[in-house]
Write a protein that binds this DNA or RNA. Structure first.
Lengths: 244, 244
DNA sequence: CGTTGATTTGACCCTAATCAACTTAGGTGG
DNA sequence: CCACCTAAGTTGATTAGGGTCAAATCAACG
């Protein structure tokens, strides 16, 4: 697994479309070494323990975070229910899509290390740096597509379909990160997955059981899933197979 | 209703957060007159009839569109079902969040007039124009928030809640556009609304009927809705009231 | 080894999906 | 302007799938 952040110091933004099935393009670094060095100067490194709270919906937004390692959950309470908006991985930015105040809350799904980039300093650098703008635009377009994919998942009516789509997405992300994909690794807990898919914990659990009992997937443990029947899996998760 | 596009010619990008309840900030134009003139030079004006097809999922993306008037539906078929990703209004951009190929299809919900901006020309201008970048970033952040709001709506389990949230969103958009809000105007057909909310046409129809029979809303006709019981409406649509 | 939180499972209920019939609203052509 | 046609929307009956609540396991950690 190539870890760019070790070769060159400083914030990293990766981009790749993890959706198009059969097209596992490797993600690439959007920032040049110079840009990363520039950002590193104004960034500090922060650590969060698993489950730790990073910022709250409504807090004054004074910094953006760039994940070095670990998984972050962007979430939001609505009508007493927690909704997970996205899972964020190494190289992802969080705290970006707000102005003045964060519009999501964020917490660590695993132990997290991240760059914390103060907003005023970032703004100063952006103003003098046309290239960074372009990179940001590319990243934002990608986040936008991701949000629309999420909407597509949520619009599904069957729990097994949602779950299969989620697993496929995780698999593509893993592939894009250059990790092995014999198994799908799920760093977040079931509750978070359920909140992401718009299901109750019970319904998600049943969806897992259904896929397992149909021999479509198997699970070594809570965090490691293997796809046994790729065809059946694709039929559930992938539009191409449903458009006959 | 102020119509900026009539005062100054050329593409227009408006931005405002239409979500925060009780905070109906008026949208403002992100582009300067100079920028708009610049874009106008490379843009052509195109018209689409109601229901007309604008571009298809997968088409080579050769231009972005900037809506002058009318409503556009960004949609996508998945598993034989049409999903509406967003409704786009005057000043909105479409065809942006893709690279190479459009990732959504688009069709006109009403008669539409739009600027068509060829991508190569746009790229040339962006390269020489730091200000435009910034504007684009603001717009993208806003689109991103909108997509996450959509996800939040889709994650709701009750049809009446989804519908109320949708109506509230439309109301806020209208307010932001400076239109009167005694009634909520729904330019799109029921089928599109259902597809946006992840409901069947039948379920949406029943949700309307439920709200009407509970005296929460009334409808003058298919396109004009009035909110009768603001408290009950907010209890359904608005997180603030559900967090007790 | 006990305690706590996470996950699974079960029983029951309710809502929205489905399928289908019916009504309405918009066009079209006479 | 009206009769007709078609697409859009409504309504009804039925059913399946997920919600809800609660009990039972399981897993992690001290």
């Amino acid at each position: 697994m190539p870890d760019e952040t070790k070769r060159t110091a400083g914030p990293a933004i990766y981009a790749v479309d993890p959706w198009v099935p059969g097209k596992p393009r490797v993600r690439h670094q959007l920032l040049s070494d110079d840009e990363r060095a520039l950002l590193a100067k104004i960034a500090s490194i922060v650590r969060f323990k698993k489950g730790e709270h990073i910022y709250d919906d409504g807090d004054a937004a004074d910094a953006v975070f760039n994940i070095i390692s670990g998984v972050v959950i962007a979430h939001r309470a609505f009508a007493e229910v927690e909704h997970v908006m996205s899972f964020l991985y190494q190289g992802d930015l969080l705290g970006l899509s707000e102005e003045g105040h964060y519009s999501n809350a964020a917490r660590a799904a695993t132990a997290v290390v991240a760059y914390k980039i103060p907003l005023p300093a970032l703004r100063r650098i952006l103003d003098n740096n046309a290239d960074l703008d372009l990179d940001l635009i590319v990243k934002l377009c990608e986040d936008l597509r991701a949000a629309q994919r999420h909407a597509l998942v949520l619009a599904q009516k069957r729990a097994t379909t949602k779950l299969a789509m989620f697993l496929e997405l995780q698999e593509h992300l893993q592939l894009a990160r250059g990790e092995p994909v014999l198994e799908i690794y799920l760093p977040m807990d079931r509750t978070s997955i359920a909140a992401y898919l718009g299901l109750t914990l019970a319904a998600l659990s049943r969806a897992f059981r259904t896929l397992v009992s149909k021999q479509i997937i198997s699970s070594r443990n809570r965090y490691h899933i293997k796809i046994l029947d790729r065809n059946a899996f694709n039929r559930l998760a992938d539009a191409r197979f449903n458009e006959t």
